[in-house]
């Protein structure tokens, strides 16, 4: 059976929208929250897929940006809810509960950190790149654990979800709507990026660095820009994730999370636009149903991952379309 990839994209997005609407109709708010969780994880993995899928860089430290997004939300909202001043050296602020402002801060800080991490780690490649990004991830993880002002290991709880103009974000379907629209916008932008001259150049660099250099392209700069964009997208997802849980803790920086993001992409299809979305949906579904049956549900996830790596290197999309995806 050969399915057109565009049809898969349409079906997945439609399904992701239909399920919460159905849940709303039958009054099952928990299902809406589950789908929202899938949407946010998908967004984080879409960000990672820019470097992993198009650029071929296996970043094992993308939880850094997820965590930065989370803490950007946590810190800003903490100061707003406690009416304390956040002293940033150059200026002070009372924090904010406005989502768009939080998103902007999350993305900008993530992008700046991605630039710094990228400059240092993109000098390496292969296993060394994996290790150095992992090392940065651990640095942030342990920093967050020892950051007593923001709860250390216990993290920060935010009592009321942050607000978005004109919406009541505490209603699950409305918060889902915010996340879903953001995912769609980012997917559209990433699709443009992938087809653009930059996307083609980045993809060419992944396949043959010698070729890219021979036509006058600078692989380092291409990869660095991809890394920055990627970090910003994953940072945005982190801010949403913290808002979903109304809680942020060092676990958002954990290497397990970095690994899970990679797993999501491999399940769905490396380098495919909608691959991370399928991966996140499968992951959250398994987590919910198998996780309800056994604490050891990761074993089954492992079996699925093994099958995909052994028999269908293009992930689920690769299996459906009959085309192998990008090889990392």
């Amino acid at each position: 059976m050969r399915v057109d990839e565009r049809m898969i994209n349409t079906v997945v997005i439609a399904g992701l929208l239909a399920l919460p609407l159905y849940a709303l109709a039958v009054d099952e708010p928990f299902t809406i929250t589950l789908v929202t969780r899938a949407v946010i994880l998908a967004l984080a993995a879409v960000g990672l897929n820019i470097v992993l899928g198009i650029g071929g860089m296996v970043s094992f430290g993308h939880a850094v940006f997820f965590g930065i997004g989370g803490y950007a939300m946590g810190i800003l909202a903490y100061h707003a809810q406690t009416f304390t001043v956040l002293d940033l050296g150059l200026f002070t602020t009372g924090g904010t509960k406005m989502m768009p402002v939080i998103w902007l801060v999350a993305m900008v800080v993530s992008a700046v950190v991605a630039l710094l991490i990228g400059v240092l780690s993109l000098r390496t490649s292969g296993v060394y790149f994996i290790m150095i990004t992992l090392a940065f991830g651990q640095m942030f993880f342990y920093f967050a654990i020892s950051w007593a002002q923001y709860g250390g290991e216990d993290g920060v709880s935010i009592y009321v979800r942050n607000s978005f103009p004109g919406l009541n974000t505490l209603v699950p379907i409305q918060f889902f709507g915010v996340c879903f629209v953001l995912l769609c916008v980012v997917l559209f932008l990433v699709a443009q990026l992938q087809a653009s001259p930059f996307g083609l150049a980045l993809n060419g660099t992944r396949q043959s660095e010698a070729r890219a250099q021979a036509v006058g392209l600078n692989p380092m700069r291409l990869k660095l820009l991809a890394f920055v964009i990627s970090g910003a997208v994953t940072g945005l997802a982190g801010a949403l994730f913290a808002d979903l849980n109304r809680f942020v803790s060092p676990s958002m920086f954990s290497w397990q999370l970095s690994g899970e993001l990679i797993v999501l992409i491999i399940i769905g299809g490396v380098g495919r636009l909608i691959g991370p979305v399928i991966g996140a949906s499968v992951f959250v579904t398994l987590e919910h149903f198998l996780g309800g049956l056994t604490d050891f549900w990761h074993v089954y996830l492992g079996v699925i991952l093994l099958c995909i790596v052994l028999f269908g290197r293009g992930g689920i999309i690769g299996l459906l379309t009959g085309q192998e995806g990008a090889h990392v």
């Binding site: 443009q192 990026l193 087809a195 653009s196 001259p197 930059f198 996307g199 083609l200 150049a201 890219a212 036509v215 006058g216 392209l217 600078n218 291409l222 820009l225």
Partner: peptide, 14 residues
Amino acid sequence: IGAQGASWRCWRGA
């Protein structure tokens, strides 16, 4: 793309 230095265009399809 290399010849025209177009690798920073992130928008229109190549």
